Amino acid sequence: MSRKYANLAERILANTMISDDSFFEGTPCWIWMGKRNSSGYGQINRRFKRGPRKGKVGTFLVHRVAVQELGGRKLTARSVAMHLCNNPLCCNPAHLKGGTQRQNVQQCVREGRHYTPFRKSV
């Protein structure tokens, strides 16, 4: 049985489109054209490589997989992949960095993207 793509990195690249209008520090976003979850983030299915679920298919966030496969950086289960470009569909590893959830929320507040539905405006 032949595979459609040689590796996961090639599969990610084949399912992205270079953006014409979304940029971060002069480089374009790579927009994921595949499946999305209800929050608007790209999803990809792949098999677990090790552990008790080895060989079974799981659904992963494509930006986390891109950080690991294309960016060559490790993410722990507790770390998040932060979008520096503020585009949830971007999977350009130059626009992504690992961090904590606290750092991610601080970046969100600092850049004015944080939304608190119950807070009254003053």
Rank of each mutant, 00 (worst) to 15 (best):
Q103E: 15
N37S: 04
T116D: 13
M17R: 13
Q103P: 08
G72E: 14
R47W: 01
P117E: 03
R64E: 06
N92H: 07
T116H: 12
C29K: 03
R102Q: 13
N15Q: 05
Y115Q: 02
A14L: 01
R47T: 13
Y41A: 08
K120P: 11
R53T: 11
K97W: 01
G72H: 06
A9C: 00
A14E: 09
N86E: 15
R73E: 14
S121C: 12
V80Q: 06
C29D: 03
G26M: 09
R113A: 01
R113K: 13
R11G: 13
P88Q: 02
T27V: 13
G55F: 00
T59R: 11
R36W: 05
R102T: 15
R78A: 11
G72Y: 15
P117H: 13
S38I: 08
M33R: 14
V105L: 12
C29S: 09
H83S: 05
K35H: 11
L84I: 04
R36Y: 03
K56C: 04
A9E: 06
M33P: 00
G72Q: 09
H83N: 06
M33I: 08
K97R: 14
C85H: 05
P93K: 03
R36C: 13
M82G: 10
I18A: 13
G51N: 04
A94T: 05
M33Q: 15
L13V: 13
F48R: 11
P28S: 03
G58N: 08
P88L: 01
E25C: 11
S19R: 03
M1T: 05
A81H: 07
E69Q: 15
G71H: 10
K4H: 01
W32F: 00
M17Q: 14
R50M: 04
Q68N: 10
S2R: 09
R64S: 06
G58V: 04
E10V: 02
L89E: 07
M1R: 09
E111S: 05
P28H: 01
M1I: 07
E111R: 06
T27C: 08
D20V: 06
S79W: 00
V105Q: 08
L70Y: 04
Y5W: 06
W32M: 04
G40M: 03
V109H: 12
D20F: 02
G34Y: 11
R46S: 14
L89V: 05
W32T: 01
Q43E: 12
L89D: 00
A66G: 02
K74N: 10
A6G: 12
R47D: 12
I18R: 08
R64G: 06
R119C: 07
E69F: 09
L13R: 15
W30G: 04
V57S: 09
P93A: 02
K4D: 08
N37Q: 10
E10H: 07
